[in-house]
Computed example of a mutant assay.
Amino acid sequence: MKQLLEQDEVGRYSVQAVVRAFALLRASRFEGEVLRLRDLCSRTGLHKTTAFRLLQTLEQVGAVERVGADQYRSLVALAGKSRLRIGFAGKSVESAFSRAVGESLRAAAAARGLDLVLLDNRGSATAALRNAERLVREQVDVAIEFQVHERAAARIAAKFMEAGIPLIAVEIPHPGAVYLGGNNFEAGRLCGLTLGQRAKQAWRGAVDQVLLLEMAAGGPLPHSSMTGFQKGLREVLPEFAQERFVHLDGKGEFGVSLDVVRRHLRRNRPGRCLVGAINDASALGAVRAFEEAGLGRDCLVAGQNAEPEARAELRRAETRLVGSVGFFPERYGPELVRIALDLIEKRAVPGAVFVKHAMITAQNVDAYYPNDTLLAPSSPADLVMRSL
């Protein structure tokens, strides 16, 4: 009886305008969310006229900010309100690309008031599977997966699908996930065009062999960059024969690529050789192998990702690295957060979101990355240690 009386007294002395105003303030699901008037009405059940009048009052007292026509953002942090959580399992802390994605995502999540669970896949399919299970246990609202093993992708995706957790896949597609990453075919084509044009300038187009340093474990999408490479090269050197392409699996690692190119050069003297690499680690491994064999001036190399080690190599005098396709992972965070929030809100999201890319060369590297001189010196030797 006493409890009923207390509840009755609360109802008797409550001010409906205050209750409704707080309902509007609580309608946002994360810090900084911008909502339209009709969204606020839908979430609170308030009539449009009532909500509009309350919002005008809340704006006057500084509790709400109008950010556009018919759009509002709450400026009040309410106690006890749960925050959305995003889980990110990165490729490896040893990967500069993965670290850049993680740092960008951390900043973007903090700016939107989102909690972030960060895990390291350590370049291992087994670790990636364990991390997927952990993110499911953590009950994150959205999972972001960055791992390079195609054979593990379906199993990882299935874990999130069974738990009802939306999934975003970075760089390597996963079944049912939204893909965010480069257009591999076009990036490879850009590498082929760039090397072909450089070969015409340096050697008048007289190329004896082309090495394609691939990463078989990544599956068909990364491989499409090698298909694009061949197309781009043939646009510049249309008479180049198919049998002069040599495919090697460098596994996307400096040490492995260094070893396979070393062994190839011991068996063959390819003459003037172009090297298209799946990433910068493989590209730098090839550069090192040719230089060790005394054949540095007989190779021209292109990589992908424009990682710090590659940018340092581009600044080295007489380098044989012609360029590297930059995907700018340091900019991924805001886009990943935008996609995550759209998935949470069940808004329409395209199946693939391609990031912009550009060829980074010795001529433009300082324009794209003027602050590199502030970083600790980086060199291919760093990649040797990471590959051991």
Rank of each mutant, 00 (worst) to 15 (best):
G32V: 03
L40H: 07
V142C: 06
C41W: 06
P175R: 05
Q242C: 02
A202L: 08
R38C: 12
K91Q: 15
L78F: 11
R266C: 06
G123F: 11
A306Y: 05
L4F: 14
I156W: 01
N268G: 07
S379D: 10
V337T: 13
L105V: 00
T57C: 13
L336R: 07
G326Y: 03
A108F: 00
R26I: 05
G188H: 03
I144M: 03
K81M: 13
K159V: 00
A376R: 07
A312E: 00
E103S: 11
A367H: 13
R331F: 12
A132S: 01
I165S: 09
L37C: 09
S282K: 04
L58I: 09
L374G: 00
G228C: 05
K48Y: 14
R66Y: 09
E243Q: 01
G255C: 08
M359C: 13
G255I: 04
L375S: 00
V117T: 12
L129P: 04
V337H: 08
V148G: 08
H47G: 13
L58M: 15
V287A: 14
A152I: 01
P270N: 13
G182N: 01
E9Y: 09
A108R: 00
V349S: 10
V325G: 08
R267E: 14
Y332M: 06
E318Y: 08
D120R: 09
E292R: 12
V236P: 07
V142E: 02
L248E: 02
C191M: 13
K251I: 02
R386T: 10
Y72P: 10
G228K: 03
A96I: 01
G188E: 07
V76C: 05
A158V: 00
L193D: 08
A27S: 15
D382I: 15
V178K: 06
G87S: 04
V170K: 04
R53H: 11
Y179V: 00
